[in-house]
Simulated assay, not measured.
Amino acid sequence: MAQSRHAVEKEQSTKITALVVDDNRINRTIHRRLLSNLGIENEVVGSGKEAVDAHCSGKKFDLILMDMEMPIMNGIEATRKLREMGNRSMIAGVSSRSMEEDIQEFIEAGLDDYQEKPLTMSKLISLIRKISLNG
């Protein structure tokens, strides 16, 4: 794992920040730990509305890991809203849903990437590399 972290840190020219958006406490903890193990500063929120509120408060993130199914405001609505508000973060949908029409609706809302749960270190490193290449 140290080698993976070193490889990612080497690719980062600046510190990458991430927001984990998931209503499931266990998923939030897992995603937060994966990010922390890569040296990525991160915050967690429990709904799409909280993600939109974080953006409204002026917080900026390089990566947003967005769950699809959440109460109050789901990931599709939150992604669409964030894009309408001009958010340019990489938004990666992370969901256990595998129905093609659900995934397609999520992507059309403004996702940059979609990963099926569980999120693994290799999937996360792939996302970070895309940020590094585009940044």
Rank of each mutant, 00 (worst) to 15 (best):
M1Y: 06
A2Q: 13
A2D: 10
Q3A: 12
Q3S: 08
S4A: 12
A7M: 09
V8H: 05
E9C: 07
K10G: 01
K10I: 07
E11W: 04
E11P: 01
Q12K: 08
Q12D: 00
Q12G: 02
S13E: 10
S13P: 00
S13G: 05
T14Q: 11
T14D: 08
K15F: 01
I16H: 06
A18F: 01
A18G: 02
V21N: 06
V21M: 11
N24M: 14
R25E: 14
I26A: 08
N27P: 09
N27R: 03
N27F: 08
T29C: 03
I30A: 11
I30D: 07
H31T: 08
H31P: 04
H31V: 03
R32C: 13
R32F: 07
R33M: 13
R33Q: 15
L34V: 10
L34E: 11
L35F: 13
L35A: 05
L35T: 13
S36Q: 15
S36V: 07
N37Q: 15
E41D: 05
N42A: 10
V45H: 10
V45K: 13
G48R: 10
G48S: 12
K49H: 12
K49T: 05
E50Y: 02
E50C: 14
V52C: 06
V52H: 04
V52E: 13
D53E: 15
D53W: 10
D53A: 12
A54H: 12
H55C: 03
C56I: 01
S57R: 15
K59G: 01
K59L: 07
D62K: 11
L63R: 06
L63P: 12
I64C: 08
I64N: 06
L65F: 06
M66C: 13
D67G: 11
M68R: 14
M68T: 04
M68F: 12
E69Q: 13
P71S: 15
P71I: 08
P71K: 11
I72N: 13
M73S: 13
M73K: 13
M73P: 13
E77R: 12
T79G: 08
K81E: 15
K81F: 05
L82V: 05
L82D: 14
R83L: 10
E84I: 03
E84D: 14
E84S: 10
G86Q: 10
G86F: 05
G86K: 05
G86W: 10
R88Q: 00
S89G: 01
M90Q: 06
I91D: 01
A92V: 11
A92I: 02
S95V: 00
S96A: 09
S96N: 00
S96F: 00
R97F: 00
E100S: 10
D102Y: 11
E105D: 15
E105P: 03
E105K: 15
E105A: 15
F106Y: 13
I107S: 09
I107L: 14
E108V: 00
A109C: 09
A109E: 07
L111W: 06
D113L: 14
D113Q: 07
D113I: 07
Y114S: 05
Y114G: 09
Q115A: 02
Q115E: 06
L119G: 01
T120I: 04
M121I: 09
M121P: 04
S122F: 07
K123E: 10
K123Q: 14
K123M: 02
L124T: 04
I125D: 12
L127W: 09
L127V: 01
K130T: 04
I131L: 03
I131T: 00
I131S: 02
I131K: 01
I131G: 02
S132G: 03
L133P: 01
N134W: 02
N134A: 09
G135H: 12
